[in-house]
Design a protein around this nucleic acid. Sequence first.
DNA 1: ACAAAAGATAACAAATAAGTTATCATAAAG
DNA 2: CTTTATGATAACTTATTTGTTATCTTTTGT
Lengths: 95, 95
Amino acid sequence: MKEINTLADYMNDENRVSPEERQRINFEVELIGKIIEAREQRGYSQRDLARLSGVKQPAIARLESMRSTPQIDTVLKLLAPLGYTLTIVPFEPQR
Amino acid sequence: MKEINTLADYMNDENRVSPEERQRINFEVELIGKIIEAREQRGYSQRDLARLSGVKQPAIARLESMRSTPQIDTVLKLLAPLGYTLTIVPFEPQR
DNA sequence: ACAAAAGATAACAAATAAGTTATCATAAAG
DNA sequence: CTTTATGATAACTTATTTGTTATCTTTTGT
């Protein structure tokens, strides 16, 4: 039985987290990070971004603290005023 | 008053659809198209993809006919077995 | 010390995505 | 013609997101 001490250990354990699931979680973390980073870089408060995106401040707060899994249109509404969008790209499950 | 005859006319009318909203709708259409296309290219039925992704067949059918706005994790679950994922990229609202 | 702004959160309602189960119509295959 | 596979859909439940409104705490700036 492999020792699991950290979250990284857990995430990298093939028997517990599949490459697909890891990819998905990584993307979600990256996405939230990017939104927070871009928002702060532009000097926007959550309320500013709420006004610009049409998504309400409590929803932004929930999302930024990863207590919800947003719908795709919510994500795009938030990214747009931050100067980002999403694209679909090929993905090789790295073995 | 500008004449609106087709959906394209409507979508391209700056006074009705903002660049951000157009971008968002374009992405969602592209996404659905890609999922259908990739699924069929691989010879997968909706039931096949349901088994591979963990998303149920009725949910896939609703999504493919654009009668729902999926959550981001649902999108990623569907894209993974099709060999795709999402990335965040800069977006210039074209004037 | 005070005021203002920020992020977090609580509590509830409204909306909707997703699961569940079953069935239907259609098309393809035998 | 019958069977089989497929996509669509119906009906209902469950789970979750989002909106709404309000408040709280903390931080920042004066």
